[in-house]
Computed example of a mutant assay.
Amino acid sequence: MMEVVPENAPEHCPGTQSEDAGKASACAGCPNQTICASGQIKEPDPDIAKIAECLSHVKHKILVFSGKGGVGKSTVTANLGFSLSSNPEQEVGILDIDICGPSMPRIMGVMNEQVHSSGYGWSPIYVEDNLSIMSPGFLLSSPKDAVIWRGAKKNGLIKQFLRDVDWGELDYLLIDTPPGTSDEHLSIVNFLSKAGIDGAVIVTTPQEVALLDVRKEINFCKKLNLPIIGIIENMSKLVCPKCQHTSIIFPPTAKGVDGMAREMQVPYLGDIPLDPLVGKCGDNGKSLPHTFPTSPSAIAYKNITEKVQKFCLNNVAPTSEDTIN
């Protein structure tokens, strides 16, 4: 009998016909584990085609990853969205699937909004005329509520966001994911398998303890054949808002983010300084690129956004010359 390997199976998958199907160490954490252990071959998920149809009017879909939490991934996603929407001719959406820590409504300044449903599905919340957002935070009765869900319920909400949100026509959809490489990451890649993903942007801070997890994130992308648009070095240095003096807060102990990117053969998109204005804008729900357009951080976001757009429009990764700020 022909050996069947499930879609998006982990490395060293024993296959559905093996006696170890669903029981081997490689099966741990795989979304197909239960069905493989039962000896049944999982039928293709019909919702994957529905998701592709729903997102057929979204030109570019970008996942934002981080190996470790606390590196500013959601803040980077929000400001990339603000930077992209600076062009009034571009329609931009942000999908927050960080289900246990949905901070995007606060960062985007739409914390008290509620999601409305129509015959076309859920309507996203509009931050600006050409910038919309959908987040689990809008579904909570209070911002203090804890989301205590197992993987299956999380995956169900992610599928519902992809299948039932009426985004309309978008040029860019940024998807803010939780830290790490868990069920949500496997699910989002699987659910978008027919809709198409331009690639992933990975956010990190300069410390070696953060880079250890970034290497795992890079290998995760490579195993799933997910293109890597590039790595962003966040909070790389402190820029004083008054005198513009630069201080290195996290000096690299090895090759640094740029060196690690070269070592892992992935593009380096650039660095964003540790700027008090970024935290101020995030806490108050303001756009950094719009509120402080001449700040070092806003300029860094502008440069990185141009590289991301270049990749999406031409499917060309940044070159070594492009990464020089």
Rank of each mutant, 00 (worst) to 15 (best):
V5L: 08
P6C: 15
E7P: 00
A9N: 02
A9M: 01
E11L: 14
H12I: 01
C13H: 03
S18H: 11
G22R: 06
K23F: 10
G29C: 12
C30S: 05
P31T: 12
A37N: 08
A37R: 15
G39F: 02
I41S: 03
E43T: 09
P44C: 07
P44V: 15
E53C: 10
C54V: 06
S56V: 07
S56T: 05
L63D: 00
V64C: 08
F65W: 09
G67P: 01
A78I: 02
N79K: 09
L80A: 05
L80W: 02
S83E: 11
S86R: 15
S86W: 00
S86C: 09
N87C: 14
V92S: 02
I99E: 03
P102H: 09
S103C: 15
P105Q: 13
I107W: 01
M108Y: 00
S118C: 04
E128A: 12
D129F: 14
M134A: 05
P136N: 11
G137L: 04
L139R: 03
L140D: 10
D145N: 13
V147Q: 05
K153W: 06
K153G: 03
K153F: 13
K153I: 04
N155T: 07
G156K: 01
L157W: 12
F161V: 01
L162S: 04
L170W: 11
L170P: 03
L173T: 00
L173P: 00
T177D: 06
P178H: 04
G180C: 10
S182G: 14
E184T: 11
S187A: 15
N190F: 09
L192E: 04
L192M: 13
S193F: 04
K194H: 15
D198F: 14
T205Y: 10
Q207D: 11
V209Y: 03
V209C: 13
R215G: 04
E217S: 13
N219L: 08
L224T: 02
L226M: 13
P227V: 10
I229N: 04
I229A: 08
G230S: 11
G230F: 00
G230K: 00
I231F: 01
I232M: 08
I232R: 08
E233V: 00
Q244Y: 08
H245Q: 09
S247Y: 07
I249T: 12
F250M: 06
P251E: 14
P251M: 08
P252E: 06
T253F: 09
G256I: 08
D258C: 13
R262H: 15
E263M: 14
M264C: 14
G270N: 00
P273D: 09
L277F: 08
P289D: 06
A300D: 07
A300N: 07
A300R: 05
Y301R: 10
Y301N: 02
K302T: 13
K302F: 10
T305P: 01
E306G: 07
E306L: 09
P318S: 14
T319I: 07
T323E: 13
T323H: 04
